[in-house]
Design a protein around this nucleic acid. Sequence first.
RNA 1: GCCACCGUAGCCUAGCCCGGCAGGGCGCCCGCCUUGUAAGCGGGAGGUCCCGGGUUCAAAUCCCGGCGGUGGCUCCA
Length: 627
Amino acid sequence: MNCLRALHNPLEVEFLRLLLIHTDYIEFEAKEPVKGIAEEIDENLKHLRVPEALAVFVSVEEDDPSNEEDIIEEAIANIIDVFKKVNAERIVLYPYVHLTNKPSHPEDAKRIVIKMFEKLRDKDIEVYRAPFGWYKAFELKCKGHPLSELSRTIIPRPKGREEIVAEITSEYYIIYPDGRVEHIEDLEKMDLSSIEDKALRLYIESEELGIERKGTPLSVNAMRRLELVDYEPASDSGNMRIYPKGAVLFNVLVSWAKKIALEDLKAMEIITPLIYDWSEPDIREQAESFHERHYIVKTPDERKKFVLRFAADFGLFKMMKDATLSYKNLPIRIFEFARSFRYERSGEISGLKRLRSFHMPDLHSFCADIEQGWEEFATLFRHYKRLTDATGIEYAIVFRAAREWWERLRDKLVDLVKESGKPAFIEVLSKMKHYWAIKNEFQAIDSMGGNVQLATVQLDVVDAARYGIYYIDAEGQKRGCIIVHSSIGSIERWIYAVLEEALKKEKPEIPFWLSPIQIRFIPVNDDYVEDCLKLASEIRARVDVDDRDISVAKKIRDAEREWVNMIVVYGEKEKASGKLPVRFRDGHIEEMTIEELKERVKELLGSYPFVPLYLPLRLSLRPKFVG
RNA sequence: GCCACCGUAGCCUAGCCCGGCAGGGCGCCCGCCUUGUAAGCGGGAGGUCCCGGGUUCAAAUCCCGGCGGUGGCUCCA
């Protein structure tokens, strides 16, 4: 869900020039004030002679006032660096517009020079300043050693992510379904017992307060024992092997994701390449800005390098940049089932929760304006909530928003939470951290009380113009789209969440529609295998037949350990009566005819997607993959 | 990436602290049993004790380095 970020080049925008001269002395005299610019000064500051000084001539160029502090800081760091290297005793700041041919407004320059002066003084450096806005006479004697004459151009160092993030402060709220918005004064000290929604409470403890979990999530062993997913030692860490039964579960989830996107939301599906040319400037810039967290693929002759995509955005945005869009087309939704790769650091990989290779159903909506964007955000939120509810997993609803957008969208957001009937935790950030104005997260709670993010919806107000994704409005003007990024979350994480939810119970159960094996027939002995095969083939469900030559009790035990939803023992009695004893996970047995069973299956399946079981019908023909 | 713990047959594991023939259960194969709602009985095959190095007469065991897994930290664009 992440983006190509074409950052503007700071070189072209703002800077400050310095000329640094290590002097035996510098002497100046203010002669005449420049009209409208000159600062008022004491008589005794009009004429100064400063020995053993580092003379710093400063000119301020057209600058962006929003970056002023950064520029000053960087300039001070440079001056002090030279000051120490040349071992000067004091500093003289000398405003000198002539170093540039595109000077800033004098008021800005004056303010910046004065601030620099004050900062240097605050660092206990003996510092003097020539008055601003006067015609001055000056004289100096340069020492002439190699470092005695230097010029520096100050470019505000683009801030690292850490710095930007460190400057952002957060406030927290809980929005209740009755419309109440509770401001949390102190997250550390808040009374969690007052939160009725258990998942929300667990989420806050786990993610926001970092309370330690009790141990290894149960799915880590279960995924292997159930022959769903396993580690692949012959690959890189975090690249999993998926067994046939895992593939069934995987494909049901994929069908579900596609059904939501393509049928319910009428998105258009696309397929884009996995690898992207490393020499494309925007791709390279984006990839490099991401801490080397990507795989590189080289051609055999090593003449070309490609980056393995870490999200669907690469191909999608390239495609949309080339597309011609009219306001009449909007909003449009584009879906891609995107296998993605992220080179997560070794300690960050974990079970099915965090992988280096994963499958992300990715849905992007392109909208005309913020109103349409919000409508889309709300629509997607409703869908994802309904669908998350359908899996029966325990989850918390979280929103994050930049302050300006929280203020702007607050009423609408509260209405959305009211409508959802579930309280939501919201983090309000002092400024925008990424591209989104507001985002939503569905946070599932695992068997150990830990949390993992599944679905997300993000309202992106900045990226479209940056990527060159435009539409033509009713007046024929080119305008940037509002992009809503969203996903139900990776298929792997869904497998994790479904298993974790099942494992919270004493007798784990996967919801019928997701379960790899839904019904198992157990013939009492060889004489009934053929009948069972025939019955199994009549039901549109994932059904199999345990035809192994072992005791019925043993077959039942195996079926239970495999979490089969319904077990049917079939022998003489059943053949005679036509009634099937269907054993459910809770242990109770219901007698029903084959027609009644088929009806029950239909009910349970409802409108969920169905994927057949692509495994031998007879258990005796199946290999054991684990154990 | 950092810290801690772990790595013995396809799977689960005993043995490791205190160096001396690698043991059990599941699964698999063979045979018997013909099975009725959570493990029927007997036999057999199966080992690079994660990898590399070191100490020692002798290393699964002790030491060093690596790889892999899990948890925590950080991170999650």
